[in-house]
Amino acid sequence: MSMKLRCKMNQKAADKIAAFLTNVSDRLLFHIPLYEIGKAFDIPREKILDIFIQGVYDGVFILEWIYHCPTCGHVVYEASSLQQASSQNFCTVCNKVFNNTLDTNIEVCFSIHPRLKTLDPAFKLNYIADMGKSIRNGKYRTWDTPDAIKGVEIIQNNLYRELMRSEVLIGDQVLPLKNATVLFADVINSTKLYASLDDRKTFSLLKEYTCILSDTIEKCGGVPVKTIGAAVMGTFIDPGKAFNAAVKALRYLMKHTQNKPIQEQLEIKIGLHSGPMLAVTLNNRLDYVGLTVNSTIDIKDTALPNEIVISEALFNNRSVKRAILSVTDTVQKQQIRFKGNPDNHTLYHIKIQNRSRKNR
């Protein structure tokens, strides 16, 4: 069997993986342990996931969505596409109905494509049988290890969203996330800008800013979900990366504006919040909705120019606290209740200084 894998950012890593998989046993080609392989070759999780997603697109691998019982871990449903997603399933072992969640009980596995090698059906049968044996012995959720690929890691992968655009939830289908971080960044007074500059110049300027914001979100490990006017929404699995993205975006844009005419020196405000949300399809693209998303918009609106405002959920995160201390020793606390929102919010306002100005 010959194999060719592609990777725009690290072709050498892709070549190493291809050479390795060409000489392994058939058993290892079923539910390939890509994160374990990545550690062996010193390839970061994000990079090796990109290599395998590109491989799916190129017809080297197949991708399977596996729905486990959240209690015992039994496999209750399998699908080859996100379009076949199931919001709810029944576990015959636990004898109960449960809701599926992208970051808790949905696993994604990669195997060799049948056109390259036909695997023995016994591999899958043994996989199910071994899991059943573990459950009978009182060992639950044996699939859920640090090297397991959760469904959220796939839909939060930018290459997957780029290459598999047709992989969306169908109709009213939704899949919850137990916890994710939302970032909303918005250019201040964009409407007034149209009045002071001509439409074409304003549109070009706002597009320049939103592109910078989207690029920063992606480079920091998040997904730029959408642009709404002069605002950009991004989502992250890791709240620490979300906060770092906000700081980098704000600093870069402040530096970017220094040499522009005064009327083009735009300011932005950023809000961050973590919590549960729903993955849905809007405008034929994967999107997120829910109270957490709406609250992030409200949080963003409390920010002053060139300020980041975060919720208490983020402030209590260790990696975020460390990141805050690296940029400022002054944080302003605010208690607020938003209109139409049943929750009271404790917010933390963080003013970011432009390093170049500070060092002058």
Rank of each mutant, 00 (worst) to 15 (best):
L125V: 13
G55P: 08
G59V: 00
K16Y: 05
K201L: 13
S204M: 07
V327H: 11
M9F: 00
K241F: 04
R115N: 15
G38L: 02
T216D: 04
K219G: 12
T216S: 09
Q258E: 08
I212M: 09
N284K: 13
D199L: 02
G271R: 00
S311G: 09
V187F: 01
N244W: 05
N284Q: 14
D120L: 05
S204V: 12
P70Q: 05
T330N: 14
L193K: 00
P224L: 14
L119C: 08
K8S: 07
S25L: 13
G234R: 00
Y35H: 13
V24A: 13
L286W: 00
Y77K: 11
S134W: 08
L266R: 01
G138M: 09
K117I: 06
K351Y: 07
H273K: 02
T118E: 09
G171H: 12
D58R: 04
S86Q: 15
K47T: 03
L213S: 03
P146K: 11
I128E: 14
G73P: 09
R357E: 08
T181I: 10
I106F: 11
Y140V: 00
T191G: 00
N294D: 03
I106W: 11
N23R: 15
D172A: 15
N354E: 14
C211R: 07
Y252N: 11
I128G: 10
V320E: 07
I51Y: 06
I188N: 02
I66C: 10
A18C: 12
N317Y: 04
Q88G: 07
D130K: 04
K269G: 14
N317E: 04
R141L: 15
Y252E: 06
N344L: 11
T145A: 12
N341R: 13
M131Q: 09
N99M: 13
V327K: 15
A245E: 04
L159V: 02
L119E: 05
I352C: 07
T296V: 06
